[in-house]
Design a protein around this nucleic acid. Structure first.
Length: 434
RNA sequence: GGGGAGAUACCAAAGUGGCCAACUGGGGCAGACUGUAAAUCUGCUGUCGCACGACUUCGGAGGUUCGAAUCCUUCUCUCCCCA
């Protein structure tokens, strides 16, 4: 068995990843190699960074010498977890679910070691496999009999839905969710000796229904460990940007945007996140935090955090490209430096940026027409005019003050591209069709 | 069932016959400052080539008036009190 450097619970504790642990879990983890699982429902065809917390728990678990089990919730995804939801959820169709499951499996495979011969090699399972042939009658006789409705109703996720002021009730389907998840735990307990289930703090109720079922059905001891809800210092929801979720799939959130997300985190959050989302050691993190507090404007923590997470989720190359792109987009680049960049690089840098194309004969035009009628970058001329008057428009990194400015072919970088900037952070790339 | 209050822009909330495209605050977008931050300060924020001007908005429909968010009728919805 692998030697365990540090007690897993202690490790998670200093990382701020423990919200609640069932008594006895720490001792168990010190005593033996434990199999533990985290479940993820396939509600989309990609994980987003909210899921990353659960993944990191598994990663730390494996690092501590235990065996992680990643459960894709093909079955539970069909029901919809009522936890944290104030309204009944719409059911997803089977085809979408199947597609999502496959996508998630591929993503999860990147984070854990599934390959080696080590005894704590990670495992991936799908609860659809053991639920699909389980008959309704069989389930309610074997499983339902052991958990009382009273017990299930006492869970926060259920209570909120039936007692809240604007309660809209909940369907029987969603009500059974915790029971299905509890059975997953029982199944893994029996099949793989899984004795620990982890998840976000909203999962506590679902997990303990599982430990309860294991106790009643098999007289077994199983444990629960949850991590706190990840928060933002400004009170907003973690992992959301203007455009929505931050996804791991590069087709949904480009590596550049992904990198930027972490780079833009506040100082306070950076200290918190670097513990949760990186594998860096305690000494390293504490040293960096101290250094960061000395010179906060250098944003050492944000840079390191963004680097670590981008490399882990995407790749070293993607990270380098994101840094390069950030330098160009936010550095002191001028029209001349832009022109000097090789075209390939130029396009890669602007990969995540909205692209617009125009015909060559539109190149000589006034910016008003070009940026509205000809391209649709701005939807009204009035809006654009106001923006220019407020000093918010730049073309090829140069501020535009005159709304009636006329462009010529020479205005285009390499006779081909025009970099339009709305404010500091919003870029649009205009290219000429050849 | 009886009585009362209300419905205004993304949200909150003024306005109660012309000075109202509608005070103000929040939010959003931009600018300055800065660390691609926070805080602060400034501008913009119904639509339209938007100085001017035009057009559409104040729960829905109709009416009075030269003129209505504002007055009248009616409908719809919300809240409160009494039974």
């Amino acid at each position: 068995m692998l030697k365990r450097q540090m007690n897993f619970v202690e490790e998670l504790t200093w990382r701020g990843m423990i919200h609640d642990v069932m008594p006895g879990a720490g001792e168990l983890l010190e005593k033996e190699m434990v199999s533990a699982y985290v479940g993820i429902d396939p509600t989309a065809d990609s994980l987003h960074i909210g899921h990353l917390v659960g993944v990191m728990m598994l990663k730390h678990l494996q690092h501590a010498g235990h065996r992680p089990i990643a459960l894709v919730g093909g079955a539970t995804g069909m029901i919809g977890d009522p936890s944290g939801k104030s309204q009944e959820r719409n059911l997803m169709d089977e085809k979408t679910l199947r597609h999502n499951q496959e996508c998630l499996k591929k993503q999860i495979a990147n984070f854990l070691d599934f390959e080696t011969d080590a005894p704590n090699r990670a495992l991936m399972v799908n609860n659809y496999d053991w639920m699909k042939d389980y008959s309704f009658l069989g389930f309610i006789r074997d499983i339902g009999k052991h958990i009382t409705v009273n017990y299930m109703m006492a869970k926060d996720s259920v209570k909120k839905r039936i007692t809240a002021e604007d309660a809209q009730g909940m369907s029987f389907t969603e009500f059974t969710y915790q029971l299905v998840q509890a059975y997953d735990y029982l199944f893994l307990f029996r099949e793989y000796g899984c004795k620990l289930q982890m998840g976000g703090s909203d999962q506590w109720g679902n997990i303990t229904t599982g430990t309860e079922l294991i106790r009643r059905k098999d007289g077994g001891e199983a444990y629960a460990l949850t991590c706190p809800l990840i928060t933002k210092s400004d009170g907003g929801k973690f992992g959301k940007t203007e455009e929505g979720n931050v996804w791991l799939n590069p087709a949904r959130t480009s590596p550049y945007k992904f990198y930027q997300f972490w780079l833009n985190v506040t100082d306070e959050d950076a200290e918190k996140y670097i513990r949760i989302f990186t594998m860096l050691s305690r000494e390293d993190i504490e040293a960096m935090t101290a250094e960061h507090q000395e010179a906060p404007h250098l944003r050492l923590l944000q840079k390191k955090l963004a680097e670590e997470v981008t490399v882990m989720v995407h790749s070293e190359e993607d990270y380098k490209m994101a840094v390069e792109a950030s330098k160009i987009l936010f550095g002191k680049a001028t029209a001349e430096t832009l022109a000097r960049i090789p075209e390939e690089m130029f396009l890669a840098v602007f990969e995540g940026v909205p692209r617009f194309t125009i015909k060559a004969d539109k190149m000589e035009a006034d910016i008003m027409t070009l940026l509205t009628d000809d391209t649709g970058i701005f939807k009204s001329k009035g809006e654009l005019r106001r923006l220019i008057q407020g000093g918010g428009l730049a073309i090829n990194k140069e501020k535009i003050a005159d709304p009636d400015l006329e462009l010529t072919r020479g205005s285009f970088i390499n006779n081909k591209y025009l970099l339009v900037q709305k404010g500091k952070k919003n870029y649009f790339l205009l290219s000429v069709e050849s």
